[in-house]
Nucleic acid binder design. Structure first.
Lengths: 216, 216, 216, 216
DNA sequence: TTTTAAGCGAGACGGTACGTCGTGTCTTGTT
DNA sequence: AACAAGACACGACGTACCGTCTCGCTTAAAA
């Protein structure tokens, strides 16, 4: 698994400049407008040097998304917060205790904020396009991109359940999917004001998650 | 606006066979693997005959998806039910009165059922890819595809609100987005059992939508 | 064998402008310096339009050589004289009777003159390069390029033999090869003054071809 | 000029195995099909080790051809016979006195014999391709390859002239070119039986070279 | 014995051309 | 007019080869 020790080692400069070039072009024109010759040229690198690392355009974009060079704040930051304080993403502060189930409101406000950033929208669209191109890797791509945050959200909700704030029979995975789904949908559908109503949805979810008090 | 009366009329056979060919290829390999030359050949038609009807690949795919050729039942049928009882989509039964807010459970169960069909998943992926391809038309495409169902859902929820089953300050649009978003997310992310937990999510939403009774 | 009557016919303008572009680039930089993208661009044509006609660079060059767009005078003119008064090569005057065997001197003087022309040198080098690239077609290429002139030369020598000016046991094919060979060799080897000594060689050949008068 | 005495000396094994690999690949597929990575791999050597010795592909091919690795006998042997009894080419026997001008017949018979060998044909083609590749070096390359033999031939002819067997005004260089030219032409043009007629041509040349005795 | 200079295997690198593919338009003759 | 057929301009794709470079390691002469 480790890189062969023989021969000239791959240039880490090239790694970086390729990903940056890909990010820039992605932000400028989206997935379609990105082409590998332009990436290579902007990165000051030969096309083959790109292909040596990523076997196709969609792999490159996937790489850029996963490396976190895209969207250094917002959704991606949320995504990696507390999970993999790695590449280019400064770790978010540990979340404090909250009086509501898992700080879901806070969570979704952050999500709403991230929806407004064009860079985040571009990232998500790039992710979707790369995943569409690459049937096999799609699941892995989404998993790696949303996984850490998603798990964090589920843990947070579970902690709320343990504190008795969330009903025990709730499917917390489904709630997490709803949270990510609404963000994805609003970005892909280019809904005008993507953050609108998020707060209200959070309220509904929080209320819906609360333990049932009456027979209703 | 009406078609010119002069000259040879357009072949309706061609319309149908093109859409069928597009559907087949879409199901076989997805959006990327579909190319217009192959569509034309399989339809037994010249390429120009396709372009005379749809101005681009993404429009053709949108057309195939919206015509319901791709998925005569399921999501697409839900989508157009009651709205545009048109091409190839048999109208769903009128929904009966329900004792819960807007029959949301029933709704989401149908949605969940439609998620299980590979053909529907393919439809949604094709739609997403077509929208990604065509930045300007993306909003319109999503609107055309989800619009009718979405409006219906909102109406149903509004009826529930009028009956006092749904709190008045709830952002019903946001709820609708959550419903569609979760479906979209699960399909695009290739989540194994896309329908799992939908019922439970519906319960949460229903409960969350209920009027607040106390201080909570 | 005739071109299919259906569909848009191939543009003869493109045929011509591609060959002209190939010729120009060949004259400017030789075989190596010619690349198909440049040919297409200069011809105002898409690369695929070139490939539709010639399946590779060497085929294109072969085509250019054979079409006679290269070297409209000199060797090529000699080559096509009396044979195929076609593309761009004005037919040479019919040769008059001569007092020496087949006018070999005259022939070789023309050959010598053609050796001085850079365009001819370029043509021959292009021919050699294309033939080298294309093992199977090499024989055909040389045959079609030199064939007509070569046959003409042989006929001329045979006429001389019939008039009793050339010994009957001489292998006239071998003489023809010597004539073409010396030209080829001097061009490929970039011999400084390619025409030097040709006249003297002609004399030797003429004398050598004369019927033996004595026992020697 | 002599190799620096410091450092690790160059491997003579590498020299040999590179030339052998080059020869093999040349015989298998010709100049075009030979690529340096394959040469290096087959020679069990790094690419740089090749480039340390020959500065380019054409130089390597020239080297392989000139070293006689390609054709230890035949044309190459003729070429270097008596001149540079060097690398891999065993010297030909000293030629005996002949009763005809310079033993031209004998010479050309040997040449004809060498034409029959596919390996020699490949050599010549490789040489031509290497020369075509390297415009500046072409003259030098031909000179190095044909020079020694050519000079020998001219000397032989001069000796004949000195003995009064060859007319004094004959351009012997031109004759030599004709001899090499016909060989080159027949090989490059893939003429079926390259050796045919050579003997007869020799007779013609010999006769043509003989001093003029009468009014002709 | 330790430097030091060069050779060497491996393989990445910049560059350039290759030949293919897909989109959307255009041009024939035919219906 | 629409249609079948297929050429066309455009532009991206992924591959191949050239000749250079950069690693870590080896070899042998010089210090």
């Amino acid at each position: 698994m480790e890189p062969s020790k023989r021969g000239r080692p791959r240039s880490t400069d090239a790694d970086r400049s390729i990903l940056e070039a890909a990010r820039d072009l992605l932000l400028e024109g989206g997935y379609d407008a990105l082409n590998l010759a332009a990436v290579a040229e902007r990165a000051g690198v030969a096309k083959q040097t790109v292909y040596r690392r990523w076997s196709s355009k969609s792999h490159l974009v996937a790489g850029a998304v996963l490396a976190g060079v895209l969207a250094p704040s917002g959704i991606a930051a949320v995504a990696v917060a507390g999970a993999d304080p790695g590449v280019g993403a400064e770790a978010a502060e540990p979340r404090e205790a909250s009086d509501e189930p898992g700080g879901l409101h806070e969570w979704m406000r952050r999500l709403a904020a991230s929806l407004e950033s064009p860079a985040n929208a571009a990232t998500v669209r790039a992710l979707a396009a790369a995943a569409a191109d690459d049937d096999d890797d799609a699941a892995r791509l989404y998993e790696r991109f949303t996984g850490p945050t998603r798990r964090l959200l589920v843990e947070v909700l579970e902690a709320g359940r343990d504190r008795g704030e969330v009903r025990t029979d709730a499917d917390l995975e489904a709630v997490a999917d709803a949270v990510f789904g609404v963000a994805l949908y609003r970005i892909l559908a280019r809904i005008d004001d993507p953050a609108a109503g998020i707060d209200s949805l959070a309220t509904i979810l929080v209320d819906g998650l609360a333990p049932r008090t009456a027979t209703r």
